[in-house]
Amino acid sequence: MLKFLNRDRLSYAVFFIAIAIIGLSVENYYYVQLLTFIGINTILALGLNMLMGYAGQISLGHAAFYGLGAYTTAVLTVHYGFSPWLALPCAILLSMLVAFLVGLPTLKLSGYYLGMGTLGFGMIVHIVFREWSSMTGGSSGFIGIPPLEIGPVSFSQIRNFFYLVWLTVLISFIVSKRLIHSRIGRALRAIHDSENAARAMGINTRNMKLEIFVFSAGLSALAGFFYAHLVSFISPGTFSFIVSIKIVTMVVIGGMASVWGSLLGASLLTMLPEWLHAFSEFEMVVYGLILMLVMVLLPQGLTRGLLDIYERTRSKKDQP
């Protein structure tokens, strides 16, 4: 147990130092911004991974919570003059409240029906963003979201924003890891492996799923908050169905049930469009192919899949 904790702490320390080094050494504005986006997407992927990878419940509408976070802070800061730091808890709480209300009936569903249910929910929220123009600016979007600042530190400085986002990523990792290696995390993984047996062990599967759904929505809203204040402009397109799929792809590629996999998946998927810049037309084809190929070849995702292959070859060597 102690050993285990130490290994985790070590990886956090390495992670922290890596953030500091990257933050200090990368000069190019564009790259710092790209890295910040990766951080935001990591939070997003982590949120869905907790739900999908650990508890085994699919959501095809997670962009809705991302959007709720972004739009809530936009509306509160611009229309009602809130400080962003006051808008942040409001955004997260609202998102969690919506997740609670939606999850109550939806999480009774499973498999395909949960997929369709969450998809439908995501569509409705997207339509609301688009049609409630007086609040959200409609399909032309919402401009003029103020930048973040704490006292003298302004986060319109991209480097500061980078630190802010990545420290949040680190904290989210610690929180998620702690959850996973606790009674709650074990119960969630139990639901994933066998819902029947989990129920027979006295786990209130319905409450458990609901709680992780709400937690996951909270993380997504946090990501949305950062996005809104980083870009200062949001539009419904940023929170559409295809974005929900993008989040699923991050989780699937990086590896379900792997916290570090979320980082990997988010990094790959944020940089992919940059690499494919010349062929942005191919973006969708590539996403689709990735999803299918990973599911067919490495259903555990890259981190887990490669780790499994490594373990298998090693154990083969062990047994002559």
Binding site: M52, G56, I58, L60, S110, G111, Y112, G115, I242, I245, V248, V252, E281, F282, E283, M284, V285, V286, Y287, G288, L289, I290, L291, M292, M295, V296, P299
Partner: peptide, 28 residues
């Protein structure tokens, strides 16, 4: 046919992947 563990979550993701793929092909 090639899926080894055909549980719903895997099949959902595969068919969603196919949907994005076909849409991309349509666009191209």
């Amino acid at each position: 046919r090639t899926v080894r563990k055909p549980n719903p979550i895997v099949l959902v993701i595969i068919t969603v992947g196919a949907s994005i793929f076909l849409r991309g092909i349509g666009m191209l």
